[in-house]
Design a protein around this nucleic acid. Structure first.
Lengths: 193, 193
DNA sequence: GACAGAAACGAACGTTCGTGCTATTTTGTG
DNA sequence: CACAAAATAGCACGAACGTTCGTTTCTGTC
């Protein structure tokens, strides 16, 4: 059926927005009902539990993330251009999501809370790290990075850089953030080149 | 008076523990009352609002952080030894706080929520970044780092590294995390040396 | 040991929370 | 247009939320 999916999409969109601003836990059925102009039970019927709602918000966000960050990066030529594209897409993504990247905030929010949410998130983060590693691998293959480097280490270094950017940008509102991030990326690439 | 302060301390301790595990927002007066064996109103009377409670938990944590991470690092000889001490103390701190570092989790939790909590946190994070910068500066002065480096950039790089460690350690539970962090630190020091 | 002030309690407030039900409306299909 | 199914609304529930209030118990001082 058509209508149901469409409404669900609308709810998820509102939910993602709230989650970006205030965290995934503070997305409530009631506030989502108000935001979409529906009744609480109407919203609830689509998910059957709050935990499922949270999981579906994460999956919805992952779809957007994939389409907005990963896919376009993979369309860029392998090597350093692709790495830079990925970084820029990631930054653009966190800027587009007013309130911050849901994956980062949920990671700290749910790192210690067992359940479906944590499990989903963990899988997504592992996929992301894997993505970083594969992009490093392809950069080696085209000769943009040294052959003897550890792709896992590269993934760690690159992700750390993004997390640093995130905190400086979202909380500290430091005006030099972009410059710092660029300098750190240049240093990273130079070391592995 | 004596008794009051003592009880308050006990409440803050319980609150910090909860906040580390589940986030600062999910520290509730009721659960804190249960944890300390007090009544809700008894707990409430010490803070007069939940927001004040949250702020005081942050300040309590900052005291512990200062005593456990910063002060001992400053007692170590300036330069690379001090930098390494700071990093190790920070890591030991996040490990001691089962459930994670309250400053990191609260940073993502409150980065977009105006109020006293955000203000307090922002000040603490600025102090922390400042601390990193000054430690870099002292390392330059004793000749452990190059004279021409940008201490702010060093602070960014170092903090990023810690944030990367944090996510790998707390969420991903990656067994290579310590190795990754050490490698990243070596690379950082080598570049600025 | 009396007495003042601080500290803690217990009950209640209005809200909001997530989650069940049972109706009612809306939708897509024959 | 009819009709089954899907989608949404309405209402109620128990629990937890932060907060207020009046009362009671404890604590330190003279």
């Amino acid at each position: 059926m058509k209508k149901g999916e469409q409404t669900k999409q609308m709810i998820l969109e509102a939910g993602l927005s709230t989650a970006s601003h205030s965290g995934l836990e503070s997305v409530s059925i009631g506030s989502l009902a108000k935001a979409t102009g529906m009744s609480k039970s109407g919203v609830f019927a689509h998910f059957e539990s709050k935990e499922n709602l949270q999981v579906e918000i994460l999956k919805y966000a992952a779809d957007l993330f994939s389409g907005g960050v990963i896919v376009p990066a993979l369309k860029t030529e392998a090597g350093i251009p692709r790495i830079k594209a990925l970084v820029n897409n990631w930054i653009a993504w966190t800027e587009r999501m007013t309130g911050g990247c849901i994956f980062v905030s949920t990671s700290t929010e749910f790192s210690d809370r067992p359940g479906k949410v944590r499990k989903t998130l963990l899988g997504q983060q592992e996929d992301w790290v894997d993505c970083l590693r594969r992009i490093a691998q392809s950069a080696i293959e085209v000769g943009d990075l040294r052959k003897d480097i550890d792709c896992d280490q590269f993934a760690f270094d690159l992700y750390s850089l993004l997390l640093g950017f995130y905190l400086y940008y979202e909380l500290l509102h430091n005006s030099d953030t972009k410059k710092r991030q660029e300098a750190a990326l240049e240093r990273l690439l130079a070391d592995y080149q």
